[in-house]
Design a protein around this nucleic acid. Structure first.
Length: 809
DNA sequence: CGTACTAGTCTTTTT
DNA sequence: GACTAGTACG
């Protein structure tokens, strides 16, 4: 009995085809990881390939660890010398050795998005870029896109002729790279770009790696960007033993530069490539696969694939719609709790997936209430928290004095009475003498302009120096303890009346344990090593299968994972697909969302539940969204529309009714109701309303939370009576300003705004985010008008007129 | 120099 | 609604 017996013919083909370029088109759940691990085992055991000359690139550290583990189980030796890691980690490893050849120090620091933003902020100030017109974020994302295409600052500059905006970005790009170089720092994209640059400028380095890596494998190939492709191409150039594994239907990272052409055009770049399709699915039931196939079939320009399984149909896909997002969360929590009680499932078999991180809050609250253990993946990164960033900045300063950003972050934390003016003076001096900020600090007593403030700076510098000398004695965890003691960071936190001081201290404890764990795992635990690991962790990396917890995460984070029970929450137009993509001119954006839906559906092994809410609060705004088009793309016979066994859900909307009404008849009914409403509202009514200052507005929103709107039974009929008669406000032809009294209970009083409603029911209007739409309804609220608009792209929304800032068109 | 409050922005997804 | 940057004031 051989270890390859369990593989099907196609999979074996992928295992045995070790030489030359191979494209493994692997549908979801088709066992691609199995092929990859067995391929590695085959290379080592049957082909006597030295594990040292095998490189495998995965998408996350977690995947890398799992692959190594699996190979370990099969081979039992040598797996530790296989180079398995992510693109970013791979590059860091190479750059740590050779980046001095590009004029950086080998102990460079890695900047996260926050760090980059701080740098960019200063640059904008320096270049006098009005960040209202051109946001730091926008500049950074332009730079990032350029880097993903391997376009350097100099090359970028060449493409800007005649485009003023681009020229500004180009200047900023130049300055940004210069600042990073000065700080001896690289951002995420630089890790890739600089490695490619290194290979191109130092052929001997490239050759050394080419010689070493005789077999290269890349997982999740559909999500590689142009630089990553370039990197792989360079590395594989000597032996051409490149095996890429991916699924074009699961390409979901276009927004960060992934180039789907990499996988679609693989055969063009490598005409001799062997293409193997894996279509047999070992993960899900036929019903789930049918749903996934049906949804993804709506995309164009894909490599035709159809997943199949020998498993039976399985249970139908559950579809539930609720009045509010609260009820949605309640249902999911209840359902899991119920099934757990019945011993149908264990917590760890479940995952709740959603489109946006913001959706996690309600779910979390509900899980807490019901006492269901859960783990949240993503959201605010642990290492992005303030207290953690502070302490990391200490470590960075001690590790790399050139990192001005880190030094400036902590120089006055905890408070040392060093203010912005002093910092600016030191910076000016550093600029004038072309030295780092920290070096200028060291000689602060000799800088005239600083004067008496130097007394405050010297102890800081001394402290850092002492840390540097002591780190060798007590190791890195000892260093952190010393930092905490010496600075009194925790005491300061305790003394502050901040509510979450306890949480923060808890986080610090966690950081400390992470340091200890790092020391235990690495014989030569260095500060740089730890900081690097920290910079490159993905949220998902912290997830362990041993914990018996329900996982909550975004669809993006769920890629590559599988669960018996999957809940896809928030299946609503405008949320998923997001209004950004619906309103975009680029049609391919909705296709990317559809791929995301495909990823979500195919995570489920046994049971899939789709939920949505009629009403949902997003960024303080109540939205009413239609059921997602992706749900409608699922053949109705795959969906259950029966009520659950428990009474309380029977009253859920019509899809749950005994009448056997399907989701589609629900949608139809919903639409006809919309149309009905449109007809019943009088037209030709023009109203001038007042706008309120932000104070009154806040209370409006608050009020809004407690109000349950119901599209079926409008609370107030804006129907037959003219608004002005009803509410005693003057109305008239558009453009006439009017006051309206009778607003009470507002602390600052409702100021009479200058804007007015110049649209009426039936008018076409434009919204900043949702684009164009038709006004369906205007309702008077105590403090503002509630406007119902059916947007062409983004569905129907109810919003407050004062907030929505609708333009008549 | 430190604070407390205000106004503005925002997120769709992340190595 | 949540968070952050900016500002006015002590």
């Amino acid at each position: 009995m051989s270890i390859y017996d369990g593989l099907n013919e196609r999979q074996l083909e992928g295992v045995y085809q070790t030489e030359g370029p191979v494209l493994l088109l692997a549908g979801a759940g088709s066992g691609k990881t199995r092929v990859l691990t067995h391929r590695i085992v085959y290379l080592i055991e049957e082909k006597n390939v030295d594990p040292w000359s095998i490189m495998a690139i995965t998408f996350t550290n977690k995947a890398a660890g799992e692959m190594r583990e699996r190979v370990d189980q099969l081979v039992g030796y040598g797996s530790e010398s296989i180079w398995v890691s992510t693109f970013h980690s791979t590059c860091v490893r190479i750059l740590r050795r050779y980046i001095d050849r590009l004029g950086y120090d080998n102990n460079f620091t890695i900047y996260d998005t926050d760090d980059s933003k701080s740098v960019m902020k200063e640059i904008c100030k320096k270049l006098q870029i009005d960040t209202k017109m051109l946001k730091e974020r926008a500049i950074l994302s332009a730079i990032s896109s350029a880097k993903n295409e391997n376009i350097s600052a100099t090359e970028f500059a060449l493409q800007t002729v005649g485009d003023y905006q681009k020229q500004r970005i180009s200047r900023a790009y130049m300055e940004y790279q210069e600042a990073l170089r000065k700080n001896n720092a690289l951002d995420f994209d630089d890790l890739l770009v600089k490695t490619v640059e290194l290979f191109k400028t130092c052929p001997e380095v490239l050759q050394a790696y080419q010689k070493r890596f005789r077999y290269i494998m890349v997982d999740e190939y559909q999500d590689t960007n142009s630089v990553q492709f370039e990197l792989i191409r360079l590395l594989a150039d000597a032996h051409h033993n490149l095996c890429v594994v991916g699924d074009d239907d699961q390409s979901i990272y276009k927004f960060r530069g992934a180039n789907i052409r990499n996988i679609l055009d693989f055969e063009k770049v490598y005409p001799e490539a062997k293409v193997i399709k894996l279509e047999q699915n070992y993960r899900s039931t036929q019903n789930i696969l049918d749903a996934a196939n049906a949804v993804i079939a709506n995309n164009r320009g894909r490599k035709e694939k159809k997943l199949w399984t020998t498993q039976g149909g399985g249970s139908l896909i559950h579809l539930r719609q609720f009045d509010t997002a609260y009820e949605e969360a309640e249902y999911i929590a209840d359902d899991i709790a119920h099934k757990k009680k019945e011993q149908v499932l264990d917590y760890k078999d479940c995952a709740v997936l959603y489109r946006t991180n913001a959706q996690s809050r309600l779910l979390e609250e509900r899980f807490v209430v019901e006492g269901i253990p859960y783990q949240l993946v993503g959201g605010v990164n642990f290492y992005a928290r303030k207290e953690i960033k502070d302490l990391l900045a200490y470590l960075k300063t001690i590790d790399n004095g050139k990192d001005d950003l880190a030094v400036k972050r902590i120089i006055n934390i905890p408070k040392r009475g060093i203010g912005a003016t002093t910092i600016q003076k030191v910076q000016d001096y550093a600029d004038a003498h072309e030295m780092s900020f920290y070096d200028a600090l060291c000689i602060a007593d000799r800088i005239d302009s600083i004067g008496r403030s130097a007394v405050k700076l010297t102890p800081f510098v001394t402290m850092i120096q002492v840390f540097r000398t002591k780190v060798k004695e007590y190791g890195i965890s000892g260093l952190l303890r010393d930092i905490l003691d010496t600075t009194g960071y925790i005491q300061t936190l305790e003394a502050s009346d901040e509510e979450d001081a306890k949480d923060r201290i808890g986080n610090i404890d966690e950081l400390l344990s992470k340091l200890v764990a790092y020391e235990e795992a690495h014989e030569e635990a260095t500060l740089s090593g730890f900081l690097e690991e920290v910079a490159l962790v993905a949220d998902i990396d912290g997830v362990s299968e041993d914990d018996n917890k329900v996982l909550l995460m975004t669809l993006h984070s769920a890629k590559g994972l599988e669960f018996d029970y999957v809940y896809l929450a928030g299946m609503e137009e405008g949320l998923f697909p997001s209004y950004m993509t619906i309103t975009s001119d680029d049609e391919s954006e909705v296709e990317e969302e559809r791929r995301l839906a495909y990823v979500g559906i195919t995570r489920a092994k046994k049971d899939l539940t789709l939920t949505c809410a009629k009403q949902r609060m997003i960024r303080g705004e109540t939205q009413y969204n239609d059921i997602s088009r992706f749900v409608r793309e699922i053949p109705v016979e795959l969906l259950d529309n029966r009520p659950l066994g428990r009474k309380r859900y029977d009253s859920d909307f019509s899809i749950l009714s005994d009448s056997g009404m399907s989701a589609f008849s629900f949608v139809e009914r919903y639409q006809s109701m919309q149309a009905e409403k449109e007809r019943s509202v009088p037209s030709g009514l023009s109203v001038n309303a007042n706008r309120y200052d932000s104070d009154s507005f806040r209370s409006l929103q608050y009020h809004n939370r407690d109000t349950v709107f119901d599209l079926k039974k409008p609370k107030s009929r804006s129907g037959d009576t003219r608004l002005k008669d009803l509410y005693g406000i003057s109305s008239g032809s558009s453009g006439v300003k009017s006051n309206f009294s009778g607003v009470s209970g507002l602390s600052k009083g409702a100021q009479i705004g200058s804007s007015s409603l110049n649209y009426v029911v039936g008018d076409r209007v434009k919204h900043m985010k949702y684009g164009e739409g038709t006004v369906l309804k205007l309702e008077k609220e105590p403090k503002d008008y509630k406007v119902t608009v059916s947007f062409d792209g983004a569905g129907t929304k109810i919003m407050y007129a004062g907030f929505a800032k609708l333009q008549k068109i």
